[in-house]
Nucleic acid binder design. Structure first.
Lengths: 207, 207, 207, 207
DNA sequence: CCTTAATCGAGACGGTACGTCGTGTCTTTAT
DNA sequence: ATAAAGACACGACGTACCGTCTCGATTAAGG
């Protein structure tokens, strides 16, 4: 764990630019993993990265921005949303991805960021752009494909409806700290599917 | 220097028990209002309440627990959920109440608490019991009344469905920091109502 | 060591008067022995004696007075000064007693008291009366007996001369924290004896 | 809010190294003068010096070491011991210097240090080296000069004899808090002079 | 023998100071 | 010019004792 992770940039080996950035990001993520966002300290990141505090503050005036950048830097490339030919399967697969992400240090960091920065409009915006909107966007992709197949009524292709599932996941996560599979199934089968089902699928017209 | 903003509990008027509790809660909420949860300091609360830090720490080892107790102590009694005879109106009225609460210092505090304490299972539980569950419960009341009137299909009386609206409100609040009325209307008309509508009433929505 | 030294004055067995005094003095001396005067705390004495702080402060407004009383209370009865028929032997014996006392917790306490209270004239006076003057007085007794035998010139029977030996012992003790026997011998043979020797006996010392 | 409560070392005038040392020493000595060693607080020294507590603790883990350094730093250069050509006059002059020093804040501080730190061998050693030994050394100088003039018997040039006068002064000071001139005269004429007088000055040989 | 006024234990209270930690700024030294 | 290293002022942390003060419970003294 304590991988003597320095040793090459000391006496006379000063890092700059990308090398320095990477070292700082790596240190940030290690701190994030080990102590969490709430207890992540600029000082500790600097120490772990063998960087000076000044080098940190020069670039990231606030902890939140450093963490945001660090997360983005090492974020695994978002895979394509699932495309199995069936909306329900696609949704379940995708929600499982989200649930996993929520449970990771990254998820914790994002939640910490959101709580930490509700006074910093810019960061809030950043988080939305980077972490929240892509999710909505990919869910919309899934729903759009479903609509093309007739599984989803076109009028359900709204931002609001796409955001229901992530909102419910977050909701559940914040009080339960884990999201078992039945919850995902319930969300899909009892909430999303009924909402997006094409009207014609319902028998019984008027009267 | 220190303006006489207290004046009645000094020499020979030492407060104990409930009186002291109240003074501390009041000070906590004032701090909460003025600087917010993130910048609320035990030291400042103590100073404002003219209490010793030890008196605080004796009761509340952590800031979060103090704030939770302070909020609960001064929480306006939850009024009865609206009962206008119409589910849509009831829902809108009630969501407006939630939106207002989210926007208040109390709302900020609760969000701060939730972010601050996702490592403290007990506090998480407390928050759910005190602040989240009652909302779900009252929404369920509204829906149950609607079901009795035939406005809501009985199978929609689930915890999951009742939690959609609060989740979407929180979702919206965290990125927009305000909840305009059209958002509430959209949530009710495009999400909740379609979900809870009795099947037999399910004719053409559009047109 | 930790002789469950309470257990009988708890629930429903409240001590008063001498019993309480003794318990407090005992606790005081134990604290004195274990942590020394500088780190002796009223609070700890109270706790160890199973007495309330108020019971302490009622009697001893200051720590120093408590310690002074405690020491006096348990002080071994001052034995008579040695009387071997020879001044040099008497002096050596007696100085050994003083050296032992200086080295004990009591000695440490007295030194602490003296340093602690050089702003409290009353306590200073108390210490002098209780602990310092008796020493001078007994040394004077030894010298007076010697004078009666012709071993000491009568003009040497002064307070000043009697106080030399204790002063030198304290001097040595404060920097060396121990007083080996040769030091005592040197003080007696090179300082006291030459000073008190009858003039007529004063022949060539050297050679 | 935070009124410009200091002066010239704020924004952009941060002191380091010697400048900061001096400011801290000065503040320490002022505190020492005003409230004495026993009530000298690190916090107050820091405040008065407009330094952070951390800057203090970085250098001086204990109050005693700070005070020792501060005293040494501002100690008036020890003048040469008097050299009037007469031992008695030299001794009296010099003892008057010591008496004055004992009576000053510095004297109080040294006494406080000695009491405070009899568990810290290193500090005890420091005090001896800095404050006690020089006195003995200068007294020895006086006596040595006297011996060269035949006023002092060579065998009296011992550490023990040189330390008698300071010890008696301290002794007297600790119980009387002042040293009137007659005391000095008595010490010199009744103790030191008799002890150091050359043997040959005494008539009456053997027979 | 029974009240009643003291006094006990326990420990909460408003304070002051402790010694530590983290922040964001700034200086020094070495590339 | 920029890096690391870390000193600096600041402010908050959570703890320890201080000396004062309730609060019952109990106990000795007086009726």
């Amino acid at each position: 764990m304590n991988t003597t992770d320095s040793a090459d940039h000391r006496r006379g080996l000063r890092r700059r630019g990308d090398v320095l950035y990477s070292a700082i990001f790596q240190a940030t993520l290690q701190e994030l993993t080990q102590v969490g966002y709430a207890r992540l300290k600029m000082e500790h990141v600097a120490a772990r990265a063998h960087a000076s505090k000044r080098s940190l503050y020069r670039r990231w005036p606030h902890r939140a921005q450093l963490v945001a950048d660090a997360i983005e830097h090492t974020l695994p490339r978002r895979g394509q949303p699932p495309d199995t030919g069936n909306v329900r399967t696609d949704l379940l697969d995708y929600l499982r991805q989200i649930a996993d992400a929520l449970n990771s240090p990254t998820g914790e960091a994002i939640r910490g960021l959101m709580a930490d920065t509700h006074r910093d409009p810019e960061l809030t915006h950043t988080i939305r752009i980077r972490f929240l909107d892509p999710t909505i966007s990919e869910l919309t992709t899934i729903l759009t494909r479903g609509a093309a197949r007739g599984e989803v009524r076109p009028s359900a292709l709204t931002h609001r409806i796409a955001s229901i599932a992530p909102a419910l996941l977050r909701e559940h996560f914040q009080t339960h700290h884990a999201i078992p599979d039945p919850v995902l199934i319930e969300i899909v089968d009892d909430v999303i599917i009924p909402l997006i089902r094409p009207v014609t699928a319902h028998t019984k017209t008027t009267q």
